[in-house]
């Protein structure tokens, strides 16, 4: 009997394969990528398929389920969010203008960098807080789903060949000194000052499955939720709402909005263009 199937290369088939792979990963390793945005997820799976030299998602699934090392590599592909120090310099300018004055009113404040990836944003904020004289009065919690990525973030070493771009960003972000003061060149890496990380706590945390763990005055989560689908975004918005103190600040990426999120009405815009929101109820 001939089964009524489509062409083997039709997009729907790959969609079935992706669904099976994600289900398998969840059941075997406990990581839940089932609510990730499908288009970006597929690109990242393709990259791992190329890396492992396999042609189909099903072939990748066989490797991932039987070889935890392949899972570790895939986890890196799925969890490293590419960013830059002082990405969107105007955001950091707005942070200085709108958020720093609020932080000054607290004797001590807690910031959460949710989905910190390899740490570029964490060190950018640490530099900003140091320049505003707030380092001693703030603690930055930097979390990511992936332990290996957090270890990288903790090192505070970024590619030396990026320093020109980052210096450019830093200046436009309102930096008050010479950017090169913050790092020393080591081989092809720029080692950032250990003192910057003194006020930072790095920890593993899964936005999809872990609960609130503290009350924060500021949460930044920029260009992390773009990799999630709408239901998971709503879930994370709820987590942030629960984790923010009243009048706490939520910072999203330049193209992310709180509109249509379940807690839209609990926030007012602090700097709409820069996607800075303040919890008011």
């Amino acid at each position: 009997m001939a089964l009524p199937v489509g062409r083997p290369d039709e997009p729907d088939l790959e969609q079935i394969e992706v669904g099976l792979l994600l289900e398998g990963i969840y059941r075997r390793y406990g990581f839940d990528f089932r609510e990730y945005a499908p288009a970006s997820l597929r690109r990242r799976l393709r990259r791992r398929m190329d890396g492992e030299g396999v042609e189909t998602v099903s072939a990748l699934q066989e490797l991932v389920l039987h070889d935890p090392q392949v899972m570790e590599r895939l986890l890196l592909d799925l969890s490293i969010n590419v960013t830059a120090m002082f990405r969107d310099p105007s955001f950091f300018l707005a942070f200085r203008q709108h958020v720093v004055p609020l932080l000054r009113t607290y004797p001590f404040s807690r910031l959460w960098v949710a989905g910190c990836s390899t740490g570029e944003e964490v060190y950018s904020l640490a530099i900003l807080l140091a320049e505003e004289g707030l380092s001693e009065r703030t603690r930055v919690y930097a979390t990511d789903i992936n332990e290996a990525v957090i270890d990288l973030a903790r090192l505070g070493v970024f590619p030396l060949d990026k320093m020109q771009e980052y210096t450019h960003n830093y200046i436009r972000a309102g930096g008050t000194t010479a950017f090169s003061k913050y790092y020393v060149a080591r081989y092809d890496g720029a080692q950032f000052a250990r003192s910057l990380a003194d006020s930072v706590v790095f920890a593993q945390h899964n936005l999809a499955s872990d609960a609130a763990f503290n009350e924060f005055h500021v949460i930044t989560c920029r260009n992390v939720m773009i990799y999630f689908d709408r239901p998971l975004q709503d879930h994370v918005h709820r987590l942030f709402y629960e984790s923010l103190a009243i009048f706490g600040i939520l910072a999203l990426g330049q193209k992310e909005t709180i509109r249509q999120s379940p807690h839209e009405r609990a926030f007012e815009e602090l700097a709409a263009e820069e996607r800075l929101y303040r919890k008011v109820r």
Binding site: A37, P38, A39, S40, R43, R44, N81, V82, T83, N223, I226, Y227, K255
Partner: peptide, 9 residues
């Protein structure tokens, strides 16, 4: 699915 999705990859 009828909506945009962004990435910084």
């Amino acid at each position: 699915n009828g909506a945009f999705s962004l990435s910084t990859d």
